[in-house]
Design a protein around this nucleic acid. Structure first.
Lengths: 142, 142
DNA sequence: GCAGATAATGATATAAATTATCAATATGGC
DNA sequence: GCCATATTGATAATTTATATCATTATCTGC
């Protein structure tokens, strides 16, 4: 079991939730795929490994993971919510408004701002997401 | 007609799209409500002013506005996508992972990073979104 | 390790949100 | 005003998400 998987599982149990087989498979699948999946995509992949896991459980687990700040739903062109892993604490995207292309990047300077906000609003920050929207190289030429 | 509305309309026509009555009412409603609406919420409000506008048109117009970078869908707890106005160029949110509370704030220092990325990926940036996720004052105490 | 309280599951049903289709209509350029 | 055509909207179909509840698996304390 990878470190990442271990740490995700620990977050669950630390918050008083049970580490069921279904949840383990769901976490495993999420980590393997690196996120960016819709609930139904995930349900399908989970069923490859464990056919007995119901769709409902996937939805509920995703809700729970959101509440714990481990994942985050984002919009990715289609109507279904896609989930990204937030355990690393942040995600940075460049998103094309036309074709939906997502480029990930690393640099970010939000920590100072985050700290200030955390104090002002008494808000416990678990992660952040920075998205730039616009037109990718290809779509600018259309 | 407000400046904001005027500028939004201009973006539409500048990009070769027609300024129909339906689109005008939709833009008006969006501006009046300041965004943060789901497609169906919007459709309902639009119909108060113009009962003849169909739901389909609202969905299609929202798609178009997204493509032009004028609005952006975000997930706000519930299953339906909510749309925020992006014409000012940016949005900054503090979002509670448990109750879905959204606090808006102003400061942000993403312009330099944005500029660097824009060059590296030859990406035309139209707007950005910065979200901090965590637990609000109230939910920390539960 | 075992029993028991209870969180969690999953099959089914229901509701909500989004997308597809296509004839009818309104729009902007001329 | 006319015309080519982008846009519309009523309907239908599909996809996503939520609710319910009897059954099952998990963790705790022994």
């Amino acid at each position: 079991m990878s470190d990442q998987l271990l740490s995700l599982s620990k977050t669950l149990t630390d918050n008083g939730h049970r580490l069921t087989t279904a949840r383990q498979v769901i976490l495993e699948t999420l980590v393997t795929c690196g996120g960016h999946l819709s609930a139904d995509d995930l349900a399908a992949k989970v069923r490859d490994a464990a056919p007995r896991v119901g769709r409902m459980t996937v939805y509920r687990t995703l809700d729970l993971l959101c509440e714990l700040g481990m994942i985050r739903p984002i919009y990715q062109g289609t109507g279904a919510a896609h989930y990204i892993l937030m355990d690393e604490g942040s995600h940075h995207h460049l998103i094309c408004n036309r074709c939906g292309l997502v480029i990930e990047f690393d640099e970010c300077m939000s920590s100072e701002v985050g700290q200030a906000l955390s104090q002002r609003f008494n808000f416990k920050i678990q992660s952040h997401l920075l998205e730039f929207h616009g037109l990718c190289d290809h779509c600018q030429k259309l």
